[in-house]
Design a protein around this nucleic acid. Structure first.
Length: 224
DNA sequence: AACCAGGAGAGAG
DNA sequence: CTCTCTCATGGT
């Protein structure tokens, strides 16, 4: 009855291995990308990230000193430029002030997750993304896809909290960073493939979390 | 031409 | 604590 492990095997069978799913040369690049990709596609976030790298604003020091108006132009492609520009500066300020300008030092402090959550602009998913993909620490990333998929499968209901969903994974899987990384990647990869059919219960659609065309939320909790 | 994308913060009740 | 609103741009 371990749906978590069952789902993992199912997804692996469908999409194969997901190695190096989150590109990034440095942990700080991962962190920047995590903020930039909030509620946008990775391709858009990637353009902004490249702009920052090209402008030499991809280090905590440079970002900390950078002019916000310049930042806003560079990250325009990924949307929400006004707030994200400040979010990036908040991140840079935190890293410089509390971590001696090295994000890697977050490994050696107590409650690294709480420290990240203290930065305005870094919520739970962003924090966990930084920890898991940037610092290779065993935190499970939960996003809207994860929540929708699990609720569609009847494993959880729609109002289950983030931390409870994350715990569902960590308690039913070996504590393995690579495994956490791949599992989340598989869920996102799966969600990106839009379902052609409209029947949410058809066998081929069973795992699709966007079978209900045009509906962002399930309009009811129809039992299977 | 609506709809959504690898969310988060702020405000109201 | 639980909704609801806003934020911006780019691609179907």
């Amino acid at each position: 009855m371990d749906m978590i492990k069952w789902l993992l095997e199912k997804l692996k069978g469908m999409y194969g291995e997901m190695s190096e799913w989150w590109p990034g040369e440095t942990p700080f690049h991962i962190a920047i990308g995590a903020i930039l990709t909030q509620n946008t596609t990775w391709t858009s976030a990637y353009k902004s990230l490249q702009n920052l790298i090209q402008a030499g604003l991809d280090t905590p020091e440079a970002l900390y000193k950078a002019d916000v108006n310049i930042l806003m132009e560079l990250i325009r492609p990924s949307g929400f430029m006004r707030q994200k520009a400040h979010y990036l500066k908040n991140l840079a300020e935190f890293v410089c002030r509390d971590l001696k300008c090295r994000l890697e030092n977050l490994r050696y402090v107590d409650n690294p997750r709480e420290k990240l959550l203290g930065v305005k602009g870094i919520g739970k998913e962003t924090a966990d993304s930084i920890l898991l993909y940037g610092l290779h620490l065993p935190y499970f990333v939960v996003d809207a896809y994860t929540k929708r998929l699990l609720s569609r499968l009847g494993i959880i209901d729609q109002k289950t909290y983030y931390d409870d969903i994350a715990r569902l994974f960590t308690e039913n899987l070996p504590k393995d960073v690579k495994l956490y990384q791949e599992y989340h990647a598989l869920i996102v990869e799966h969600a990106k493939r839009r379902c052609k059919k409209k029947n949410p219960l058809c066998q081929s659609c069973l795992l699709k979390d966007q079978c209900l065309v045009g509906k962002k939320e399930d309009q009811d909790t129809q039992d299977v």
